[in-house]
Simulated scan of single mutants.
Amino acid sequence: MVPHSYAGRSLVEFLITLLIGLAPVACGLLVLALQVERKQDETIEVTAREAIYAIDHVMSTLHAASSQALALAQESCDTALPELRQTAIRQPNVRSLMLVKENRVFCSTLYGDYQRVIDPGSFLDMRLRVDPSGEATPDAGVLIYRLQEYPYGVLALANLQVLQRELLGFQNEVVLNLQFGPQYVWATGNGTFEQTPNHEEDTLQLVSKQYRYTVHAGYPDTYTRRSIQQAVTATLPSLLLVGIMTSAVAYWAMFRRKRAPAPRPR
């Protein structure tokens, strides 16, 4: 019975030592996963806020050009057109300007005397609209900024590439989508939500306080798992070394206690 008892006790000591050694490894992996997820959340939020700052700046340039042209809406197209074209040329983000009276376009820097009825309700917050294709650029979408002081108004048109260049400037894995009502714009295209790039994980939505469009930010599906796997691959050897050292110390402490002489009776 003594050999069996000794073997059983040794097995228990081995299992206890193994569990003690695995504890820092398991805790380290858990902390590592939490740190990866927290870092991703922070990156998404920072990127989304920086995107709003950059896109708001583009909108501000369209607003500035529209404000300068607004007084021209009170004149005839022939009189206003030279100055209207100069205003458009001075702002690189502006592709064209249109003058509006009573929700009817009557003058355009591209076409001169031009007649077109607009629907204010088709604009996000009565100010912004994305058209997947423009009359002058059927293969490229345009962003339309509307400034209205009824009965006069101005439409400022910008190519969507202006927004896409801003989105391409973010050098990280965050996928950004801009929403203008039912239309979306991302770094390489535009369309409906069903067409947007994969941003299924950790999706964050922020709304521009000034212009009311929405920024959707997120990571592609499985990105978190791949990030954790990469972090584990880089860190696991160090954690295993800590676990082995912890097991060795625990085993030495138990072995020392077992070999310690029993106290002599008084």
Rank of each mutant, 00 (worst) to 15 (best):
P82K: 09
A26G: 08
V12N: 11
R38L: 03
Y213V: 00
Q74I: 00
D131P: 04
A262V: 01
V105H: 12
Y213M: 02
V249E: 13
L241A: 13
F106S: 13
K39D: 11
Y152G: 03
M245T: 06
T203N: 07
A48F: 01
R116H: 15
V142N: 09
D221V: 00
R256P: 00
F14E: 14
C107E: 04
T43N: 07
S247H: 11
R104W: 11
A250V: 00
G191Y: 05
A140W: 02
G191K: 10
T192H: 10
L160V: 01
P132E: 08
R85H: 08
T188M: 05
Q40T: 00
Q210V: 03
Q91L: 08
V46I: 04
N198L: 00
I20S: 14
P263N: 10
F255S: 10
A54T: 02
G28W: 11
A33M: 02
L167H: 09
I16A: 15
P265K: 10
L124C: 06
V94M: 10
T87M: 13
Q148P: 02
R259A: 10
L72Q: 06
A88W: 13
F123P: 13
S76M: 03
R95W: 05
N198D: 15
P24V: 01
A248S: 15
G191R: 06
E13F: 04
G243N: 12
I44Q: 07
N172E: 04
I244C: 13
Y150R: 11
D119W: 12
Q86T: 03
P265Q: 04
Q183T: 06
Q183G: 03
L157Q: 13
I144A: 09
Y152Q: 14
E173N: 03
P182W: 09
R146Q: 14
V2Q: 14
P82C: 15
A33Q: 06
P265I: 02
N177W: 08
G112I: 00
G218H: 08
A231C: 03
L72F: 12
N159R: 10
H199K: 10
S238R: 04
E75D: 15
D41G: 10
K39F: 04
T235E: 09
M59C: 06
R165K: 12
N93Q: 07
E45P: 02
V2F: 05
A54R: 13
P263R: 09
V154T: 03
A26T: 01
Q171V: 00
L240A: 11
S66V: 01
I118Q: 14
V207W: 10
N93F: 06
L157D: 04
I144G: 12
A156C: 09
Q148R: 09
M254A: 06
C27Q: 08
F193C: 07
L18M: 09
Y251V: 05
E194Y: 02
V242P: 08
R165E: 15
Q229R: 11
L110N: 06
N159L: 08
Q86R: 14
A253P: 03
P3C: 06
L241M: 07
